[in-house]
Nucleic acid binder design. Structure first.
Lengths: 158, 158
DNA sequence: TTAGTTGCAAACGCTTTGCACCCAG
DNA sequence: CTGGGTGCAAAGCGTTTGCAACTAA
């Protein structure tokens, strides 16, 4: 059973309806494979159904999240969603340079998680943990870079 | 030299002015000890100077951030700032239950950072790293909770 | 049928910007 | 005096909501 089918049955069970809009939204989230934003979902769905409303996208995302069928991912600022596939541990590394997403084996986080629990008493929610940075490829590409595009301000520092 | 004095001298050096508004904004950020939002800064400054404008607060925060005198903390949604005191580098843990932010000493992340670099080749941007989860207090409070925290409408029972 | 769902438009909260006046340097 | 800074108002932008029409079950 695909994640999509599971979601559809779950929708029914909770007394919600299967509308074409929801099917399309689901398909897009599924295709994108994670880390989709409402705007992207909206864009993609609109390709096949131009009358889709952004409000519908938001309402659907909220509904699916409430039913724990998708998760909202903690990416600074913009909200992102991904499908909750049972038994899958989602740890991702997102390269800020090329935008690609890479899998992060759970063991790395397990260490941090245990340490925080034991020594600080904080229980991290690592289920959908995402860390940003530079992937190996972009690191070598950017080696020569001197300036940081992010904080170029044009004032000279005396 | 206090962090405030350092900031003031840095402001001068970079050709910016010392205005009463900036002094007040700085004082508030300093007093709050970190993790302040623009709204809170606005509120606090308004207590002593009712004519302060929210736009001024935003502009000042952006300026200070651009000069690397304060840091923006990566909290889901709301922007928070804290003073950059040299040698007090740390990361943050945000409790999803009570919403409080806690400081996380660098050593915990350094391990993960090194491991990722060495074994995966990924260079995490940990400068403004934030991890979410449950703080120790909320963990004990929530121990016997039956419902899923994800769709909790109410607020933290103190 | 009928309650959940949609599209539309307007409202929302936070943030940014254009502008004329003001003031720190 | 001069250019950066301010207050004000208005505009963005992403998100939410009220409502009448629509439709899946």
């Amino acid at each position: 059973m695909s994640a999509q089918e599971a979601i559809l049955s779950r929708l029914k069970k909770t007394g919600h309806r299967l509308t074409p809009q929801r099917l399309m939204i689901l398909a897009v989230i599924d295709e994108e494979g994670g880390h989709v934003g409402p705007d992207r979902v909206f864009e993609r769905v609109k390709e096949q159904y131009p009358y889709i409303d952004i409000a519908t996208v938001y309402r659907t995302l909220h509904l699916l999240k409430k039913l724990h069928l998708i998760s909202e991912i903690d990416r600074g600022g913009a909200s992102r969603y991904e499908i909750n596939e049972p038994g899958t541990r989602h740890h991702h590394m997102v390269c800020e340079e090329c935008g690609n997403t890479f899998d992060l084996p759970p063991k790395y986080l397990d260490a941090l998680r245990q340490t925080l629990l034991n020594e600080v008493g904080f229980e991290p929610h690592t289920e959908h943990f995402t860390i940003s940075g530079l992937c190996s490829e972009c690191r070598s590409t950017d080696k020569h870079r001197v300036t940081n595009p992010a904080d170029n301000e044009g004032h000279h520092v005396g």
